[in-house]
């Protein structure tokens, strides 16, 4: 990294060229092309109402994809996010349920579910760090475990009829923008700053590039990993809270399949699955692109099954193009 910076200082032209060929810029170009094509496909697509509404729908994936970026940057993965979301949703309803065993105030139930979500993530982190089980296996196991707990606790009962004020988060607007989109924006800003501007963020890249080296250079690798997995659990809890508020009920199957959507967004955003590189901006472009494709293709008359074919193809080709360009860049260097 330092070497590149030194080179840039010597040659401003190369710096500009490198900026143009950065992954995020390429992705942004792909996104722009997609938007133009989708706009040509339907005149309903590029309207403020539609775009804001899509913002509502992408919230859960967005919230989970942000910490997923951290995790993938370190070379890890978290498959349990959807299950944590299901467990948090169930606990939120179960603890609050006025005819249930606890009957807590709603605020307390929300806080409790967020705490449990964080705890679930911390448990993932502990197993990965302290026992040394690879992230994929750990979270594969807890994917089943947390979903099982959600099913076991809920006993297939859903909890409904929340007070009207609870729905503001998932259905209301603030300054004309869906409430949850503000939440997404805040977290995007926080995570972007943390990843690119703090010692903690740079340490995550170091861990992903060379874990042993990071350890020897004094980075508390274990603690950092536990923090990001815990953060991932917390964000899954946030997603659960917003989702319950949006759909007004709790079910134990909520969030199933969320992990693959989130990983797809992160990977599409240019974060290397092997760790060591990636950015929050890329992830943001990733989940926005996926959501707009889903929406725009539907508006243009493509059915859901056709849409997922297109998204799969775009995912492969975006990475292919990006790989090609990055290799050309490094070859030209």
């Amino acid at each position: 990294m330092t070497t590149i910076r030194q080179m840039d200082e010597q040659n401003p032209g190369a710096k500009f060229r490198r900026f143009l060929l950065r992954q995020e810029i390429i992705l942004f170009i792909i996104l722009t092309i997609a938007i133009i094509l989708l706009t040509l496909g339907s005149d309903k697509f590029l309207t403020v109402d539609n775009l804001l509404n899509q913002g509502r729908l992408l919230t859960e994936i967005a919230l989970v994809a942000l910490p997923m970026t951290f995790i993938i940057v370190t070379g890890g993965i978290d498959l349990s996010v959807g299950s944590i979301m299901g467990l948090c949703a169930i606990l939120l309803g179960y603890m609050w349920n006025p005819s249930g065993p606890f009957q807590w105030p709603l605020e307390l139930a929300v806080i409790f579910s967020l705490v449990v979500g964080t705890l679930c993530g911390v448990i993932n982190g502990l197993i990965i760090v302290r026992i040394g089980v690879p992230p994929l296996i750990t979270t594969l196991a807890t994917l089943a475990l947390y979903r099982g707990l959600a099913e076991g606790i809920s006993q297939a009962r859903s909890v409904r009829n929340y007070p009207e004020s609870f729905y503001v988060l998932g259905q209301g607007t603030f300054l004309g923008v869906p409430t949850q989109l503000w939440v997404v924006l805040i977290f995007v800003l926080i995570t972007a700053i943390v990843l690119s501007r703090t010692v903690f963020g740079r340490s995550l890249y170091a861990i992903g590039n060379n874990e042993l080296g990071a350890r020897f250079s004094g980075i508390p690798v274990g603690v950092y990993k536990i923090i990001i997995y815990g953060f991932s659990g917390f964000m899954s809890g946030m997603a659960a809270w917003i989702f319950v508020s949006r759909v007004t009920t709790t079910r134990s199957d909520m969030g199933s399949g969320l992990e693959l959507d989130a990983i797809a967004a992160v990977v599409l955003g240019g974060t290397s699955i092997f760790g060591g590189s990636g950015s929050i901006i890329g992830t943001v472009i990733g989940f926005v692109l996926i959501q707009l494709l889903k929406n725009g293709l539907a508006l243009a008359g493509v059915t859901t099954d056709g849409t997922i074919v297109v998204i799969g193809t775009v995912l492969i080709f975006a990475i292919l193009i990006n790989n090609y360009i990055q290799r050309r860049v490094s070859a030209g260097k």
Binding site: I273, V309, I311, G312, N323
Partner: peptide, 23 residues
């Protein structure tokens, strides 16, 4: 040969196969 990580290729392929089958 094209150096795309396997998880990315198969994540994309998963969508393609699943959607294509229904189509």
């Amino acid at each position: 040969y094209l150096r795309i990580p396997a998880i990315v290729v198969t994540l994309g392929l998963l969508s393609i196969l699943k959607g294509g089958l229904i189509t």
